[in-house]
Design a protein around this nucleic acid. Structure first.
Lengths: 237, 237
DNA sequence: CAGTGGTCTAGACCACGGT
DNA sequence: CCGTGGTCTAGACCACTGA
């Protein structure tokens, strides 16, 4: 990227994560940062706004910006502590099993959820996520075939997102999530190692590209004891 | 507020919510909006950035901004569908029962969570939220007495937040949330109408003021069947 | 090509905190 | 009082879209 304020953001975010900028200490003032990076104040402000939005710093009028303690925060990063991150934190190797990969005609409900007609084709991908040989998460993905024409077993076992962004050059832009707790279905019981309680946490995810087209609907069904969602939220009028 | 871009944001957000700006249609261009509101482009862009951040619109380079369908989105607003909002959507009268209101000395864990010393005093507030005569949510609040010196039964039954913002003039700025599913404790069973499963959704909330001081730790324990969390998330580098 | 949004600049004035 | 961040302006150039 050749965008100055994003470069500055990334540099400063890295410094905070590495602990080079000490939590609770003051950041250099905007004027100082202007000189240090040799950019205009507006550019510095854009970088600082990004840092603030993502929970790295807090700006206080008349005083300055202070570094927040991201470790005490148990860092949110992406909102959802995804399967990969979860596995990394537990220092265990994640494993993915592909259960289903097929093209289907959507039923009425799915057609509405994906904003496609009943005659369009949709990829249906079902994967089981394992940690320490236990089946923890059941991922059900539905992807508009018009947007992603081909999908292979390798892509599904690796990362569908990477394929979309890197190979197809599409930009994932925003998503709407919904989290509920539901009774486990027969499908859940079949694929997951559930405890006696038979409840699952269901994360429904509608994912949009940068041109606002909906391209994927995902349902992620988690074992309750392994589920954790962390969120950093700023007030916004 | 006398801040132009926030006024413009509020006006446009209201138009979208009322349906005066039609979903999937194009917004006027930034140039047009500059003239319409008689402000600079930067001001318009700040308003549009806020709209984008909160899921009202999507900006597309080279094309324009389009209005997103917030109804299809089942609108997130504040992230967490709080007790009040939940009750409003169900068109039922919410009811709050105050179980505990006292000053305590924090134990080690709480002292760390609230960043206070063991000799400081902390308000402990426990409330039960009822809908249709069922006990749905158990709210446990711990508030730094240094920041909120007085707390009465009336305030707890109304809204602690309103008291803090309106009466004390403090600004709530950001929060960190964590959502997990846990086995119900004796306290949960005592106060909530649980089903056979005895699980609760636990929402832990660390709330900060605009000067980055932590002033409240809240634990909200929900009956699983009445819990729902909605989130709109934009990608941010 | 013209129009759009994205980035960047330089300068102005304000409200706030602390001296 | 000065230094801080917050708001606002005017103008410039770029990359992208679509005719």
């Amino acid at each position: 990227m050749n965008i100055k304020y994003i470069n500055i953001y990334n540099e400063m975010a890295a410094e905070i994560e590495k602990g080079e900028l000490i939590p609770r200490s003051k950041l250099p003032s905007e004027n100082e940062l202007m000189q240090r990076y040799d950019v205009s104040r507006d550019t510095i402000r854009k970088a600082l706004d990004l840092l603030a939005k993502n929970g790295y710093i807090q700006k206080i009028k008349g005083k300055g910006s202070i570094v927040l303690d991201i470790n005490k925060f148990d860092f949110p990063v992406s909102g959802l502590v995804s399967f990969k991150e979860l596995a990394q934190k537990m220092e265990k190797k994640p494993e993915t099993v592909l259960v289903t990969l097929q093209l289907i005609k959507p039923d009425e409900m799915l057609a509405e959820q994906l904003h496609v007609s009943k005659n369009d084709e949709v990829w249906k991908v079902i994967r089981v996520r394992k940690i320490e040989n236990e089946n923890i998460i059941l991922d059900k993905d539905f992807i508009n075939k018009k947007i992603v024409p081909t999908l292979t077993e390798e892509i599904c076992l690796d990362s569908i997102y990477e394929h979309i962004e890197n190979t197809l050059g599409l930009q994932i832009s925003f998503a709407k999530k919904e989290i509920t707790v539901e009774k486990a279905t027969k499908e859940d019981k079949k694929h997951l190692d559930l405890d006696s309680c038979n409840m699952v946490v269901v994360v429904k995810n509608y994912v949009y590209l940068s041109d606002a087209t909906l391209f994927q609907y995902t349902e992620s069904r988690h074992r309750t004891d392994k589920f954790r969602f962390v969120d950093f939220a700023r007030r916004s009028y």
